[in-house]
Design a protein around this nucleic acid. Structure first.
Lengths: 301, 301
DNA sequence: TCCATTATGCTCATATTTAGCATTATATAT
DNA sequence: ATATATAATGCTAAATATGAGCATAATGGA
């Protein structure tokens, strides 16, 4: 049995307050998929450069920030394996880029695939209407496993003592998968969010979780911002990625005290209110000291 | 050109205050290597289970905590490629286990490979005697790249404004590699730490960095502790992994306020002073709420 | 001119972290 | 026995960080 090694890319961009992910071009008959391509051991000297190369070929995008996410290799990921196809390994990458116009049909709001992950306007209605009841039913049907299932649900969805943790995107998706509430697991049900091909929604979930964790510790949001931005635009970006609203004055204080941005003196007057100062990322900080993130970090208690 | 996919394991255990890593059995003629084995697409249904299976076969160890680290795939990782061998990908895992007796020759103190990473007795002498002078020379020889190199050194080794960051193990190793201060890059020099085969020291560096980050956010140290332990033993464990000394009273408070441990009422009298209470890990917390780590977290400023 | 809207400055209360002092309980040396 | 070294444990003052919200400033449009 052969092994086929591929590279998959979760390419993220922002359009204002919409987090976008780049999809592979498709004829529309199959569910959407992430851009992916085989690893060419001759041409690709490193995995990173291989990824950059075929992403540029396929999409015309030049990637800036690129980070290896995870290697997916479970048997049965690709249904063609069952017809004697090779075992398919995918080395998944997270990439951030500025070059996105939401108008482009290849870019897609990632919350279409994970509506419950967007809590900026409060908990999503789907949670109470479909997801939690469905999960509760699955737990109840679990026999001896039931209690364990209930605990996993509480932890992942923050229903018990625990609070909602934005980083647990994958844990939540996996519960929905096991409970057959997503179309990838049960095509007839198709209850929660839009499906993707193969295990690509799992890969996207991994990427969102990782990115949400990352913005807390490293100044990666700026890879997604244009050169100049107001603090509210920056806040909207962080909120878009994190899926949660932030306190405006505290966000401002947080960002200012990190020293990651500097005012440009320019003003933005399309704010709908008092004009805001435009800021820019101080690229130098990356050379001066380990630079932190601009999203609030979880508390310990 | 073919691709060969292997699994590599960084298996960590603790012997009191010595962090140990499991090495592959060897005839002694080659530099030490990590345990590794090919991925068998027929027998191994998942990458994790494949790893567990051959680690158990090869070493007799049953792994508890296992986490995928990184997939290494640069051309030239394995020198046999140059003689027409296949491109070798290694999916590296971090595994934690209790089962270690330091007496066993297959276990090795990881600081033998990274002496400069152990700062429990202060900065290592090697830093001032060999490493920093060597790096400074490399930067000076860098021409236009020189300034950039100096900044990377400052950031990685905390020589400028920045403080030493225990997590940057890989960054430091890579600088030493580029500056040809490690035997993997310049066999005749062999200045800093003991060498390993192929890029295994890079893999180990990745693992140490990841583990140091992880203990701050998740209660993984307990995977390395025996059932009962005193708070000082726990502190020594965290210090061993982190390579830095901690404030005793504050560590105690930190651990107690997380609710991760509970006293057993038993005492340990081999302390050399007043007997200490023995604690145990409250496994339940993992089911109750997202459990934090027991190492201090970096500050933002 | 008034109002809605956003920007920005500032304060207060509460947590968390750092650094240490002080006291308690053992084992060992004198 | 008594002193001494060593470690465990309790506690606190000061510095920082975080959460929540009040107040004022500057716009455009009704």
């Amino acid at each position: 049995m052969d092994i086929l090694v591929g590279l998959a890319a979760v390419i993220v961009a922002l359009d204002g307050d919409r987090p976008l992910v780049r999809l592979a071009r498709s004829d529309g008959t199959l569910p959407p998929a992430l851009p992916f391509g085989p690893l060419d051991p001759v041409r690709h000297r490193t995995l990173d450069s291989g990824l950059r190369a075929w992403v540029e070929e396929q999409t015309g995008l030049t990637l800036g920030y690129v980070e290896q996410l995870y290697t997916f290799g479970d048997k049965g990921r690709d249904p063609r394996e069952r017809q004697g196809g090779p075992r398919v390994l995918s080395i998944a990458y997270l990439a951030l880029t500025r070059a996105a116009e939401a108008a482009d049909r290849d870019w897609h709001d990632w919350y279409d695939f994970f509506p419950w992950e967007d809590r900026r306007a409060g908990r999503h209605a789907l949670l109470d209407q479909v997801i939690l009841p469905g999960l509760a039913q699955w737990a109840a049907a679990g026999g001896a496993e039931g209690e364990r299932r209930r605990q996993r649900i509480e932890l992942a969805f923050g229903t018990g003592d625990a609070a909602w943790d934005g980083e647990k995107v994958l844990e939540r998706y996996e519960l929905l998968y096991e409970a057959a509430l997503v179309a990838e697991a049960a095509p007839q049900a198709a209850l929660a969010g839009r499906a993707m091909r193969l295990d690509h929604r799992r890969i996207l979930a991994t990427a969102i979780g990782r990115l949400r964790a990352k913005i807390r510790y490293r100044p990666v949001v700026f890879e997604l911002m244009s050169e100049h931005f107001t603090l509210l635009q920056l806040q909207r970006a962080v909120e878009a990625l994190g899926g949660e609203r932030l306190h405006k004055q505290n966000f401002r204080r947080l960002v200012e005290q990190t020293g990651l941005v500097e005012g440009t003196g320019r003003r933005e007057s399309q704010t709908g209110g008092r004009p805001a100062e435009q800021f820019r990322f101080r690229r130098d900080v990356l050379l001066e000291r380990p630079a932190p993130g601009v999203a609030p970090r979880p508390r310990r208690g």
